[in-house]
Nucleic acid binder design. Structure first.
Lengths: 149, 149
DNA sequence: TTGTTTGCAAACCTTTTGCACGTTA
DNA sequence: TAACGTGCAAAAGGTTTGCAAACAA
């Protein structure tokens, strides 16, 4: 994917926003663009920092408002790893999904995916008669690097 | 299990605390007793409320300090459902483990377990070369009751 | 013009910390 | 007595909200 080009998610999100009567210029658009370039999760603070680095002086409140809206629309997933910070990541249109292994020592987040796990979860939710709009699995422990020392 | 009797977890926790040179009277003991009677997770605020209802005027700070200690000792697991509140539940001595389906409409939490899932996760963590001290899976969606309406 | 979006600052809430006072070994 | 535990109040984050100015249809 060439640098600067709009991603699938970016396009999907903008279309969905427009369809729902929302604009995606200024702050909101900047958040959409940035999220579109991510493959894993970012905190609101990281998003704000990143935007400032590239010259968009977006206020924290606008970042949170954009994330809230995108979350409501099912375009971003919210995940938490137990550090008291919420993290956000784009929900890919194709439905691919990944999970997170968190190192409790160094904080590193390792994303991973597993098709069998996804199928298993679908079945589980069905058994529970619980609809599943999203899900997230967090594995806590020590990453490869930290475990070695 | 008769009302008022000490649970397995209660006993285990008290033994572990004593072994580590900690006391379990007053506030800490009250938190241990209450947690021992839970099968699913409680927030710090819920714990404090519950204790006050039964006449133990335990300060919030003590609740958090007790939870922090128990968590460090691996006696309680900390889970978050994306509402910005941490929840805590006893880690059962036998190692049984459950996960949570959260209704994003009414907030109901449905615990569930699945041995195959646990085995699958062990294998996954192994593949990632990530040690696993704990894990939690959260399914978001609508519960049986809300989905019907 | 009219409704939406934005940034700032203040408010809010959960969680942590400092500190003086009890409590327990 | 000495170390530990507790409650209160204050502090420290992260997140949300009120509001007036800026913006877009």
């Amino acid at each position: 994917m060439p640098h600067g080009s709009a991603t699938d998610w970016d396009n999907t999100a903008r279309r969905a926003l427009k369809a729902a009567g929302h604009r995606a210029g200024g702050a909101r658009g900047a958040v959409v663009s940035l999220l579109g370039r991510q493959s894993c999760c970012l905190s609101a603070h990281e998003i704000s920092d990143e935007l400032h680095k590239s010259g968009s002086d977006v206020g924290m409140a606008s970042v949170y408002r954009a994330l809230e809206l995108l979350h409501e629309m099912g375009l971003v997933q919210r995940v938490e790893f137990g550090e008291g910070v919420a993290r956000f990541e784009p929900v890919t249109p194709g439905g691919e999904h990944h999970h997170h292994a968190v190192c409790d020592r160094c904080g590193r987040v390792t994303p991973f995916e597993d098709a069998r796990l996804e199928r298993h979860l679908d079945r589980l939710a069905g058994d529970l008669r619980h609809s599943m709009s999203g899900h997230d699995l967090v594995i806590h422990g020590e990453c490869r690097r930290c475990a070695r020392s």
